[in-house]
């Protein structure tokens, strides 16, 4: 790890000033991703602004039944929150399926959203990676890319975003609140992350001097019947090959409302608008689920090592909706 200047920020104002004053500064929350990447020489901040003491740790119910989640709430605390468990089970499940008990105790909501790809070629400084070193090429395309994207990728980058929580938040129409010296702004979560195009090094819509302060999750009728299904290579403690966050409200056998997002398949949590369009108003049957999944994956493009994800994503969508239909019916 290269040396850096360490600044401990007690509040939001100090933090945003510190990152504004020091280009090349990085915010440090739980450290689970940043410290690892600094050790691998992928992240080389000149200044590290420690925000772990900033009081953004509340989980508050909003008047409309939604939730406001402080950016520094630990993943484990958010997953255990009674309101999350009761009204947004998809979010609790996504959080609990991520990483390990130790890491969930460290990782923050903001840091989770901004974690970087686990692409094998991104973390190896000897490999070509357009995300790490713009213009150097992409060794993953012709190499190992089991974890790579099948939706929204480009010839320049096939990295996936590794977060589980963000997939659930994308399905829940969450909004991210961002602060900088210029003030506060709100970004819908589905617009926070960018697809790679020819600038894969630009991963989010945030400016380098912006700090995520909170995430708001609006109330939703569908969220009560929601679920996160994560498919991975071992039973626990592994990143998703494919994951599905789904929430569905079935009335009289027909889909009244539905929200679906996919993980492990794109550079961002992939909101499945096409599938939702097919499903909305249709009968909640296996055939319709399959049709919706086909529609969503119609534009998917695979490489030899990750082509299986296209069919896996379809099947996981169907399986998740099927299970929700059973659970919703039983409720």
């Amino acid at each position: 790890m290269r040396p850096f200047e360490y600044v401990s920020a007690p509040d939001v104002a100090t933090a945003v000033r510190a990152i504004s004053d020091a280009p090349g500064a990085k915010l440090l929350g739980g450290g689970t991703n940043l410290v690892d990447l600094m050790r691998q020489d992928v992240e080389r901040p000149t200044t590290v602004v420690d925000i772990s003491g900033v009081p953004l740790t509340g989980v508050d119910e909003l008047p409309d039944g939604g939730l406001r989640i402080g950016a520094l709430v630990r993943n484990s605390r958010l997953a255990a929150h009674p309101v999350v468990r009761a009204r947004f089970p998809v979010l609790a499940q996504a959080l609990l399926s991520g990483a390990s008990g130790q890491l969930r105790n460290m990782a923050t909501v903001g840091g989770n959203l901004l974690q970087r790809t686990r692409c094998l070629y991104f973390v190896d400084a000897s490999a070509a990676c357009n995300k790490r070193e713009p213009g150097s090429g992409c060794d993953a395309v012709g190499g190992f890319h089991r974890g790579g994207a099948v939706l929204g990728a480009s010839e320049h980058c096939i990295a996936t975003h590794p977060s589980d929580m963000a997939v659930a938040l994308a399905a829940l129409d969450a909004v991210v609140e961002v602060e900088s010296v210029r003030g506060t702004r709100r970004v819908p979560l589905v617009e926070l992350h960018r697809l790679p195009g020819d600038t894969p090094h630009r991963e989010t819509e945030l400016e380098p001097d912006e700090l995520i302060t909170a995430v708001e999750v609006p109330a939703s009728t569908a969220a009560a019947t929601s679920r996160y299904r994560k498919v991975r290579d071992r039973a626990s403690f592994a990143f998703a090959l494919v994951s599905v966050a789904a929430a569905i409200d079935v009335q009289d056998g027909a889909v009244a409302a539905v929200r679906i997002a996919l993980g492990g398949v794109a550079a961002k949590p992939w909101r499945a608008y096409e599938a939702e369009r097919v499903l909305t108003g249709a009968r909640a049957t296996e055939a319709v689920f399959r049709e919706a999944a086909e529609a969503e994956l119609a534009g998917a493009v695979g490489l030899p090592g990750n082509e299986f994800k296209i069919e896996l994503a379809r099947r996981t969508i169907v399986a998740t909706l099927r299970q929700l239909r059973v659970e919703g019916g039983a409720a």
Partner: peptide, 15 residues
């Protein structure tokens, strides 16, 4: 390309 325990999958308790 996977010289770490995050990407070389040993069995965990749950397996």
């Amino acid at each position: 390309m996977n010289p770490g325990l995050g990407e070389y999958h040993l069995p965990v308790h749950a397996d």
